[in-house]
Write a protein that binds this DNA or RNA. Structure first.
Lengths: 338, 338
DNA sequence: AGCCTCCTTGGAACCGATCCCAAGTATACC
DNA sequence: GGTATACTTGGGATCGGTTCCAAGGAGGCT
């Protein structure tokens, strides 16, 4: 592997000058620049990222942290879409993404230290943090720039999120407008903000329309299909005519539970989900759900993070927050109550 | 951030000595060692990975490349499991994983150069390469250590794989033993070796049992649910009594196509899949399929790669290949022909 | 013609570690 | 007591870049 020194020798200039050419520094004579560029081509030189990082203290690597609590859910297509969005944005900007799934085999403090303190990452992206897993406070402590996907209540945290409250309200109002009055909900784990927000939106819609929500009509699930099935089994005893389910995976389980009990969707019970996973449209019946732009959200998160990394040099550090809108996808799983 | 120098000053020794303590070099007086360790604790020193990498020429980072051709399939839970296996193995060994999904936004040669030539990765893992995407030849060219998940025909390539031929044969023989004679298959994209191998296993089982396989009973799919649906639609015209489908995602589509045509699984047509995705057991009907240990395979791939990285120092370079067995998961989607 | 500027360029320090080599010290042996 | 040996330790070069600073040279102005 040729180094700067080699190029310099071939072009008959100093390392400094070659470095300037590589980095598009303006103060290089055009003739010299061409000569250096020829030399670079000739010997197939490529800048050594590690050496460069040591000097500049920037690696152009972003760490993506998925906390252990949700890594069980990792097979949900939600994460694949998120990763695709994030990597795509990184590709465009010439950044690399280190993926760090916290798993049971190593304790999370060690994992955190490894990724944050070893100097390999300029900044961190984190998704689906639980309020009680301590990740965000630790990140704040270290002072490393980071952006969360999904809002976090701490005022110092920059995040990107979708309008979960608005989306949930929209979904619930859709059910209400269809004529439903006895509407249940299956929530996500309530230590996660998206789950909280979707519940909030649901309650707001119900409240605004003067509909009571007895506690028994609210069942906490865990964002998995199995969880949806179990939650729906309990909810069935309350005989709701419609259910707002906080994620599509949960909704898939809920539909199975309903059908398993010999009831039909939507004729006996209407079901509305949240996420609009790719499979939602091809379920039987096709799932009415709230679309959230997962890939776009992850892309945006990367862009916001990179923006922060650049500004940091200029000492601009104001918290940034972006919330994207959701969209109701009306399909077959909801109808008027009989 | 404190550096080696700072620790050295506090402990009253030289950088060299601190370095020896950090790296567990034996020739350090126990008393000195303790003194240095106290100094390290006291100032919260952590080795700077970048600087260390520059000196040692090893980063403890592995690059995982998913070629563009399959990044469309990326929402298949298969990839999530693979990533989880790979990251978990990395966590255990103290390695980091850079995830590189080749996407349309950047051409694949550029992507390849970025990840391979910038010095950030010690080695590369690659999954589901197509025979015609040129990735493997390029990797061979650069001389970087790499391991593919899924076999590659080139004799110089180290890989881990599951016994696709054996699994496919086992599945097909299961159908044959049930009494089926007119058995169709939906294959994956035949420019991918797993798809080829599963077809080979199918044909071998059929041939060994003296059953003819007219061309019309072989339909190429693309490993997606929609592809499975389309392929099955064509296959239905041939009236097979059973179908061996080369992946669970394809099988899900196939089942839907069968049900959509007013036929029942397994009463009218038996369906057997391949992969044993987490959802296979909870489908309606539960899918009989060939289990492959995806997470374990990815873990193994990481281990083999790390092993190669270590041996490389010792100039051991023999190609390594491992093939794991598969297992038949008998569920409800297959029965005797009527 | 002389002086001042601006543009280019090279030199050297630096980023934070590793590691070889030589020197110093303690122990053992004769 | 002197010398050989083993064990510790420090110094300095090195990895491959970036960047500050100073110097040289060309061009412009009076």
């Amino acid at each position: 592997m040729p180094t700067l020194q080699d190029v310099a020798r071939i072009a008959g200039v100093s390392r400094s000058t070659v470095s300037r050419v590589i980095n598009d520094h303006p103060s290089v004579d055009p003739r010299t620049r061409r000569r250096v560029q020829r030399a670079i081509k000739q010997c197939g030189y490529r800048p050594h990222a590690i050496a460069r990082s040591l000097a500049t203290k920037r690696t152009r690597i972003i760490g993506m942290i998925i906390p252990e609590a949700v890594s069980r859910l990792f097979t949900d297509p939600y994460f694949a879409l998120m990763l695709r969005g994030a990597t795509d944005a990184c590709n465009r900007s010439g950044y690399q993404l280190i993926l760090s799934l916290f798993t049971a085999s190593v304790d999370s403090k060690t994992m955190h230290d490894r990724i944050v303190h070893n100097g390999y990452v300029d900044g961190v992206l984190t998704a689906n943090t639980c309020l009680d897993d301590g990740l965000v406070p630790r990140l704040l402590d270290t002072g490393i720039p980071f952006v969360t996907i999904g809002r976090h209540p701490d005022a110092r945290v920059s995040y990107v999120d979708v309008d979960n409250i608005g989306g949930a309200r929209m979904a619930t109002e859709f059910l209400i407008h269809l004529g439903h009055k006895r509407i249940g909900t299956i929530t996500g784990p309530l230590n996660m903000t998206p789950a909280q927000d979707r519940l909030t939106g649901f309650l707001k819609a119900m409240g605004d329309n003067g509909l009571p929500v007895p506690d028994a009509l609210i069942v906490e699930g865990d964002f998995t299909e199995a969880g949806g099935r179990a939650a729906m089994a309990r909810l069935l005893e309350e005989r709701p005519t419609a259910v707002f389910v906080a994620s599509d995976s949960l909704a898939i389980g809920a539909v199975k539970a309903i059908q398993g009990a010999g009831l039909r969707v939507p004729e006996d019970i209407s079901v509305i989900g949240f996420d609009d996973l790719p499979s939602a449209a091809s379920l039987e019946p096709a799932l009415t759900t709230v679309h959230q732009p997962i890939e776009g959200l992850a892309q945006l998160a990367v862009e916001v993070l990179i923006d922060r990394l650049k500004r940091r040099v200029q000492n601009g550090i104001a918290v940034q927050r972006v919330v994207l809108p959701t969209e109701l996808m009306v399909r077959r799983s909801c109808t008027r109550p009989s």
